[in-house]
């Protein structure tokens, strides 16, 4: 068994007075695609934000590729080789598509070249001069994923890329994510859409009230859908 690329132990996080994570522990191994599943407000997004250092306060241990991240600031964490795509996509309205795409700087070797990105996400090619926020939801999601691939980060944090998108677009996003995995990216994905999650992931970490309550492989998920559905409350 390989060493985990990301090892989170007893992670706690706060927003002001209220505690959002109560001691999360889980691993992600190199090349793996892991989803965090759970109900709304379980702490899935907060986990990604804590890894990235975008929460006011966090304690515990986040070990990435041998480096402890909890003492580091957001931009330093990014430079260790992690890229983050937020739930709201955060496409900048004051920048056009090309500017949005090339905004993240190249931090390390191994990033995907811009020309390759445009080949991989052909929808963006035609809209380069448009205002970023004029794109459709699906295109914005593509753009949000595409732009973080150029930094050279090999570990991606994707927060609900399927949210609010039409089934046909979700399918396309799923295809893109599988392709990224094939290209060797390690991915931690927050997902509420189970049917989407099981098509792309190797393992599923179930989050409830800010702690990990279960971990299932994809085959275990298939075998025990009923149990998983009680976790998600569906």
């Amino acid at each position: 068994m390989t060493e985990p690329l990301l090892k989170i132990q007893n992670l706690e996080a706060w927003y002001g007075e209220s505690k959002a994570l109560h001691g999360m522990s889980f691993d992600v191994r190199p090349g793996e695609l892991v989803t965090l599943i759970g109900r709304n407000g379980a702490g899935k997004s907060t986990t990604l934000r804590s890894i990235m250092g975008i929460v006011p306060k966090r304690t515990g241990s986040i070990l990435f590729d041998g480096t402890e991240l909890t003492g580091k600031r957001t931009f330093q964490i990014a430079r260790t080789g992690i890229a983050y795509c937020p739930e709201e996509r955060a496409i900048f309205s004051s920048l056009n598509v090309a500017e949005n795409l090339t905004l993240p700087p190249v931090l390390k070797a191994g990033g995907i070249a811009d020309s390759e990105l445009l080949r991989q996400f052909p929808n963006l090619q035609r809209r380069l001069k448009s205002q970023g926020t004029k794109l459709s939801g699906g295109e914005q999601q593509m753009l949000a994923i595409a732009r973080i691939l150029r930094t050279g980060a090999r570990f991606l944090l994707l927060d609900e890329p399927s949210e609010g998108l039409a089934p046909v677009v979700v399918k396309e996003i799923g295809e893109q994510i599988r392709q990224l995995k094939a290209q060797g990216f390690t991915i931690l994905l927050v997902e509420q859409n189970l049917s989407f999650a099981r098509k792309v992931a190797d393992r599923h970490v179930v989050v409830e009230n800010g702690v990990v309550v279960d971990t299932l492989t994809n085959s275990e998920l298939e075998a025990d859908m009923a149990r998983v559905k009680t976790y998600l409350g569906v």
Partner: peptide
């Protein structure tokens, strides 16, 4: 300039790209 404009909208996202926003 595009860093500045973007950071005006969402500083934490620009920082998550590895830019020393502070």
């Amino acid at each position: 300039g595009s860093y500045l404009r973007a950071a005006n909208e969402r500083p934490e996202i620009v920082e998550s790209f590895g830019i020393n926003v502070p």
